[in-house]
Write a protein that binds this DNA or RNA. Structure first.
Lengths: 185, 185
DNA sequence: GTCTATACCTTGATAGAC
DNA sequence: GTCTATCAAGGTATAGAC
């Protein structure tokens, strides 16, 4: 619509990459100024609340992305297998097949209470969404709940291990495991 | 033996908790000075290389702990089921049943290349150890390798999710899953 | 081995011109 | 909306007395 929103959005896209690569404490305003090409004062024009507001805005951006690409499928109404496939495709793209870290993992470390609360909320919603999908696939509630937790744990863990090894194979393996096993009887 | 080693060890125990709670970048020397009760100059007496050396020393402490409590069991010679149980007990204790984070997850963020290299080495050794244990339990090599990766992924992921939710249930569930499933036919 | 004091740098954040 | 210049605070690290 206007230049302001476009600028803010483009800053956020850069911030997302910086934050998930280095964590909240690992990203300095000097660094942000450098990679965005904007002076610090300009950054404060877009984010008067400073670094904390930037972090919250990045969490909001990620939340919007989840809404459009993950929650819509998890909580949708189509064929469960196709919905699961859409979710895994989306995550694969977002994490660049396991080469990028997850905000839910790196942001709580130095993040403010609002950040930790946002992480908690997103995780709960993901668990509920996976559980609903599993139930839609014919699984009983207890089993669906267990598989939902295992799915979130597997995704997060495979990202940690992939980053630690410098090899995204564990993430790819996890995606394949979920493709074949999440809805299996 | 002497006071020097004892002091250094006690500092490291505190540093371990600080680093895994806040990450490398999240821990300041002022904070370390505060929680150890030692002046900054005293810290540099024990760790002339500064914060980086402290981080490396903490990784070394964790490596020693793993050697004594995990690798000895994974790579040992007794009954596989008992060895697995010992490993899970050790991890449960080290992570306080899922209430504490793992250095392998939080240290690579702000850590130097030596730290990342150490993380990579530990993960590879854990994978190899789990694989050997699974093979000792009668599983074929390919299956043993897959289960080893799933075990490491599950432990790391359950710690991430437990921390994100502020609830260690996912970690406890993961331990139970591994107890029942890791060696199952 | 520990301390006080301090040097020096980077940080997050602001003021005010344009 | 962006800039230059600057600030106070906190960061890592060091000097030197005891």
């Amino acid at each position: 619509m206007n230049a302001a929103r476009s600028t803010r959005e483009s800053i956020l896209l850069v911030l997302l990459e910086e934050f998930r690569a280095c964590g909240f404490d690992g990203v300095s305003l000097s660094r942000i100024s450098e990679v965005t090409g904007l002076g610090k004062a300009s950054l404060y024009h877009h984010f008067p609340g400073g670094k904390g507001e930037m972090a919250e805005a990045v969490m909001g951006l990620a939340a919007s992305w989840l809404e459009a690409n993950v929650f819509s499928a998890l909580e949708g109404k189509g064929d469960p297998a196709e919905r699961m496939e859409a979710v895994l495709q989306a995550f694969g793209s977002f994490y660049q097949q396991g080469r990028k870290s997850c905000l839910l993992n790196v942001m709580p470390l130095g993040g403010a209470p609002e950040i930790r609360s946002a992480v908690d909320g997103v995780m709960r919603r993901l668990l509920a969404g996976f559980e609903k999908l599993a139930q839609d696939g014919g699984l009983k509630k207890a089993e669906a709940k267990a598989r939902a937790e295992a799915a979130l744990v597997g995704l997060q863990g495979s990202l940690v291990v992939s980053r630690g090894l410098g090899d995204n194979t564990p993430f790819l393996n996890q995606i394949r495991t979920l493709q074949k096993g999440f809805l299996a009887a």
